[in-house]
C-alpha cells in the first residue's frame, strides 16, 4: 500500500507541469466560465423566457454537461491516458521505473489510479464551478431564479454517472497507450470509437451500451426520472455497471500485458 501511495505521489510530481494535469483544471474553468459569461451578458434575453428555478438550472448546467459528456470527456480521457503513459515512452523511462525496488503492480495501479483521479478532479470541478457560478450569477443579476432551486443533488448524480461512465473508455485507452508509444494509434481508435459511440447512442441501438465509448452519451440521455421528482433517478443503471465492468476487467488485463512485456 505504501508503495502504491509513493508511486501515486510520484505520478503527480512528474505530471504536475504537463497539460494532462492542467487540462483537468483548465477544462472546467474554461467551459463553465464561458457559459457563465454567456449567461451574464445575455441575461436580458434569457430573463425574457421567465424560466422557473429548476429549468434555469437545467439550461445553465446542461450547457456544460452536454459539451462535456458528449465530446470533451471522451477526448480528454483519450488524451490523458495517452499522456500519462507517454511520459514514460517519450523519456524512455519504463526501464528505470521497472528497475526500481517497487512491485510492478503498485507502479501500474498508481498510474491507473492517477488517471481515474484526474477525471474525478475534472468532473468535481465541473460540478463545483457550475454550482458556485449559478449562485454568483444570482448575486450579480438578482432577477435570475437560481435561488429557487437547489441543484446539488441532481448535479452530483449526473456527474457521478458521468464519472463512472468514463471508466470503460479510460481502461481501453489506457491499455492502447501502454502498448503503443505513438499518439496516432490510440487517438485514431479513440476517435473512431467516440464517433461510433455517439452515433449508436443517438440512434438508440439496443447494444450501444456495450460500446464503452457510447456510455457517456447514453448516461446523459437515459437519466430519466422514474416518478414526478426529477431528482429521483438511479446512479447505477445497466450502462454504468457495464462501464465499471469494462474498467475492472481491462485494468486486470492491462496488468498482465505489462508483466509479460519485456522492457526493451
Amino acid at each position: 500500500m505504501k508503495q502504491f501511495y509513493i508511486a501515486l505521489l510520484s505520478e503527480f510530481y512528474k505530471s504536475r507541469k504537463t497539460l494532462a494535469f492542467w487540462a483537468a483544471i483548465i477544462l472546467p474553468v474554461l467551459i463553465c466560465g464561458s457559459i457563465t459569461l454567456g449567461f451574464y451578458f445575455n441575461a436580458e434575453k434569457i430573463l425574457k423566457s421567465n424560466y422557473p428555478g429548476m429549468i434555469l438550472w437545467a439550461q445553465f448546467s446542461g450547457a456544460s454537461l452536454n459539451i462535456m459528456g458528449l465530446l470533451i470527456l471522451p477526448f480528454y480521457v483519450i488524451f490523458m491516458a495517452f499522456s500519462i503513459n507517454n511520459i514514460e515512452h517519450k523519456n524512455d523511462t519504463w526501464k528505470t521505473l521497472f528497475s526500481q525496488p517497487l512491485n510492478k503492480f503498485s507502479i501500474y495501479a498508481a498510474k491507473y489510479a492517477y488517471a481515474v483521479l484526474l477525471i474525478f478532479i475534472c468532473l468535481l470541478l465541473f460540478f463545483g464551478i457550475t454550482y458556485l457560478s449559478g449562485y454568483l450569477l444570482q448575486s450579480l443579476i438578482p432577477e435570475y431564479t437560481f435561488k429557487d432551486y437547489n441543484p446539488s443533488i441532481i448535479l452530483s448524480k449526473f456527474y457521478t454517472r458521468l464519472f463512472f461512465s468514463s471508466l470503460g473508455i479510460l481502461s481501453i485507452q489506457f491499455i492502447l497507450s501502454l502498448i503503443w508509444s505513438d499518439f496516432l494509434k490510440p487517438m485514431g481508435i479513440g476517435f473512431v470509437g467516440t464517433i461510433m459511440g455517439i452515433i449508436t447512442a443517438n440512434v438508440q441501438w439496443k447494444y450501444a451500451q456495450y460500446i464503452a465509448y457510447a456510455i457517456p452519451t447514453i448516461t446523459l440521455r437515459s437519466a430519466k426520472p422514474k416518478g414526478s421528482n426529477p431528482e429521483d433517478f438511479q446512479i447505477f443503471s445497466n450502462d454504468i455497471y457495464i462501464s465499471i465492468a469494462y474498467g475492472v476487467l481491462l485494468f486486470i488485463i492491462g496488468y498482465f500485458i505489462l508483466t509479460k512485456k519485456n522492457i526493451k
Partner: peptide, 12 residues
C-alpha cells in the same frame, strides 16, 4: 543502474 542513454524526464 544506468542503461543505454540515461532515462530522465525532459520536462523536469
Amino acid at each position: 543502474s544506468l542503461v543505454e542513454q540515461p532515462a530522465i524526464y525532459g520536462h523536469l
